[in-house]
């Protein structure tokens, strides 16, 4: 038995634990609705959509609503990963065994993240299937692996920050509140800064906007996919807001995601390593 086996057993445990909580089932329900209903709605106004855009309609939900929803999904999964264990008093039993704390930490992180990837996979599958069902054959599906990779990497940002807040708070309600507040305040600030920049033209606001966690997390996957689509599908491009996103490069976004993720993980790991394992707190 290697440490990898121990880590993978913790990861499996975390996936089952998160699934056993109803919130994951609710998230799956939302995913199903979010990835099917918009296509049905678009099909009702299909006469207003230019026919050449039909084969690319799958892009709409995936690259526009998807990142926002997926990042929030990451927040909801990660915020409870550590905090719920303290709250329920179950961490104590697992950590009283001769096991490295780091194995537990990595296993929990990976378990929740794998669950997130499963929801991301479901999101992509349902979107493409719904697009196919409502608008016929879809093209450029070869972009999907790259999109999935970009989105999984981008979502690490909020996943790590929420994971960190769960470890620091050790109460799931507080962890959810603080992580959601972080997510939405960044999202709303982003919109305001965009507006102020448009009105004033002051580059300072755009610079601040570029460094907000929402910018790279929401735009990386979109950047990847939109830059590879034909420029003639104007309806789809307009619908997903192409050209309205923060004007930072993909490399800058990748670097920023790495920085935020590392900070979140580092703080969580240090706190977890050096602090006492609290007893049941609720």
């Amino acid at each position: 038995m290697s440490r990898i086996d121990v880590i993978s057993s913790f990861a499996r445990y975390e996936m089952r634990r998160a699934i056993a909580r109803r919130k994951v089932l609710i998230l799956v329900g939302f995913t199903i609705l979010l990835c099917t209903l918009p296509y049905y709605g678009l099909s009702r106004i299909a006469y207003r959509i230019p026919a050449p855009d039909y084969p690319y309609i799958w892009v709409t939900v995936i690259s526009f609503v998807g990142p926002l929803f997926l990042n929030f999904t990451a927040v909801l999964i990660a915020a409870g990963a550590m905090s719920e264990e303290y709250e329920q008093g179950t961490a104590e039993l697992l950590l009283s065994k001769p096991v490295n704390r780091s194995d537990y930490f990595i296993g929990k992180f990976l378990g929740g993240y794998l669950l997130f990837l499963a929801i991301l996979g479901l999101d992509v599958f349902l979107s493409v299937a719904s697009a196919y069902a409502t608008f016929g054959v879809q093209l450029s599906l070869g972009l999907l692996p790259g999109f999935i990779l970009a989105q999984s990497f981008a979502s690490l940002l909020f996943y790590s920050l929420a994971f960190m807040l769960g470890e620091l708070m050790r109460r799931s309600s507080l962890a959810y509140i603080f992580s959601s507040a972080l997510f939405f305040s960044s999202f709303i600030t982003n919109i305001y800064l965009e507006l102020i920049y448009t009105l004033t033209g002051n580059g300072f606001y755009r610079t601040v906007q570029m460094y907000l966690p929402t910018s790279p997390a929401d735009s990386l996957a979109q950047q990847y996919i939109l830059s590879r689509l034909p420029s003639t599908i104007l309806f789809v491009l307009r619908l997903v807001g192409a050209g309205e996103t923060v004007a930072s490069s993909a490399n800058f976004n990748i670097a920023l995601i790495l920085v935020y993720t590392s900070i979140g993980l580092l703080i969580a790991a240090v706190y977890f390593t050096y602090s006492d394992i609290s007893r049941k707190v609720s």
Partner: peptide, 29 residues
């Protein structure tokens, strides 16, 4: 060293077999 806590908090979705298997993984059994 093994520890048996007083009225332990164990995840309710686990079965005794599953919990013990998890512990054996932890013990590198």
């Amino acid at each position: 060293v093994a520890y048996s806590p007083e009225l332990p908090n164990i995840q309710t979705f686990l079965t005794p077999s599953e919990l013990l298997s998890l512990v054996l993984h932890e013990l590198h059994f």
